[in-house]
């Protein structure tokens, strides 16, 4: 029964990126998707029809993450050039560039080969992830300089309004809720910063955290660790609910996410496979070879059973049931 729910049919292949695609993200209603990659471009697609709509070029280095506001009017993106770009979707112009993440870093380079997608060690300025908050008034970025930075989109300031530097290694991923900022770092911690009560809750997983993603009900966090394990944490208690194994994730930043119904956990693997686990009993429901190379990013449609995956092989594939 569950086999049927999991997308496994290739609906479309979105080609256009030259070089690795580092992230692919659905927009908030799932009608469009954005991708970014090593070719320094961000591309807007209609994944359901397989059409490329627009290309956003301005980055000087590879683009590592992109996020779009709920109203689809603005984009933010980040990458190797220590800046966070704030775009207007329709005109394709950069409205603002937040300069930051240039802190001196002396962190242990645990993730040396994590950047083996073509990065050298001198790159201490890269920004790993960006997200808008609910009101799309703040962009929060996670950087290699061991910090989370919040940027104000409403004012004209290009300085961060908040710098969270309690991490002790590169911050790889960030999630936002209505009142919290959650960051996952290579130092093995997932830290939740609750703005409402002014507390920082640190969950130490003991393994470098690659990527974090929230369950749709907001109660759990799925963290992808570098020991080829996905871990599901209960947010209120900090308990480890489940571990999902089977894939390989040892040196790349691979995304993971939950399906729209929260019934399954999905994630890419370094051998080009996609895995689907049952959320509760952690059994591999489905796994198939989706790409010829590392699956860097997965994103699930917010409502339908549809998924997009991006890979180092330069393609984005759309999967449906």
């Amino acid at each position: 029964m569950s086999e049927l729910e999991v997308p496994g049919k290739e609906a479309n292949v979105l080609k256009g990126h030259e070089g690795a695609v580092l992230a692919a993200r659905f927009n908030s209603d799932g009608n469009y998707c954005l991708s970014c990659g090593k070719d320094r471009t961000i591309r807007l697609w209609n994944p359901h029809r397989g059409i490329h709509i627009k290309t956003y070029k301005s980055h000087a280095r590879e683009v590592r993450d992109v996020h779009v506001t709920p109203d689809n009017s603005k984009l933010c993106s980040c990458g190797g050039d220590r800046q966070i770009f704030y775009w207007d979707v329709s005109t394709g112009r950069v409205i603002r560039k937040f300069r930051g993440h240039d802190g001196e870093t002396n962190c242990l380079l645990l993730l040396v080969d994590l950047y083996s997608t073509g990065l050298d060690l001198g790159d201490s300025h890269l920004v790993n992830a960006v997200k808008f908050n609910e009101y799309s008034s703040v962009v929060v970025s996670a950087g290699y300089d061991q910090s989370l930075r919040a940027w104000d989109c409403r004012s004209h300031s290009t300085e961060p309004i908040q710098v969270i530097d309690s991490f002790s290694d590169s911050v790889m991923s960030v999630c936002l809720t209505k009142s919290e900022i959650i960051g996952g770092s290579v130092d093995g911690t997932v830290r939740t910063f609750d703005i409402r009560i002014g507390r920082e809750i640190s969950d130490d997983l003991g393994q470098p955290v690659n990527c974090i993603s929230m369950s749709n009900d907001g109660n759990c966090i799925l963290a992808s660790c570098l020991d080829s394990t996905l871990r599901l944490l209960d947010r209120t208690s900090g308990e480890l609910l489940q571990e999902y194994k089977g894939h390989t994730c040892k040196s790349y930043k691979l995304d993971c996410c939950l399906t729209n119904t929260d019934a399954h956990v999905t994630g890419g693997s370094e051998d080009g496979f996609i895995y689907f686990w049952d959320l509760v009993d952690a059994s591999v429901v489905s796994s198939f070879r989706a790409h010829s190379s590392v699956v860097t990013s997965v994103s699930y449609h917010p409502k339908d059973s549809c998924m997009i995956t991006a890979s180092v092989d330069g393609t984005i594939r759309v999967w449906k049931t």
């Binding site: 703040v138 908040q162 969270i164 209505k178 997932v190 609750d194 703005i195 920082e200 969950d203 871990r231």
Partner: peptide, 29 residues
């Protein structure tokens, strides 16, 4: 480590007033 992790710790953290404003929350501090 298996037993130990995940390990939860809690700290004080002070959000910037502007951040609270932007998140439409009351500054706890």
């Amino acid at each position: 480590t298996k037993k130990m992790f995940p390990k939860r710790e809690e700290y004080q953290w002070r959000p910037a007033p502007v951040l609270c404003k932007r998140f439409d929350l009351i500054d706890p501090y």
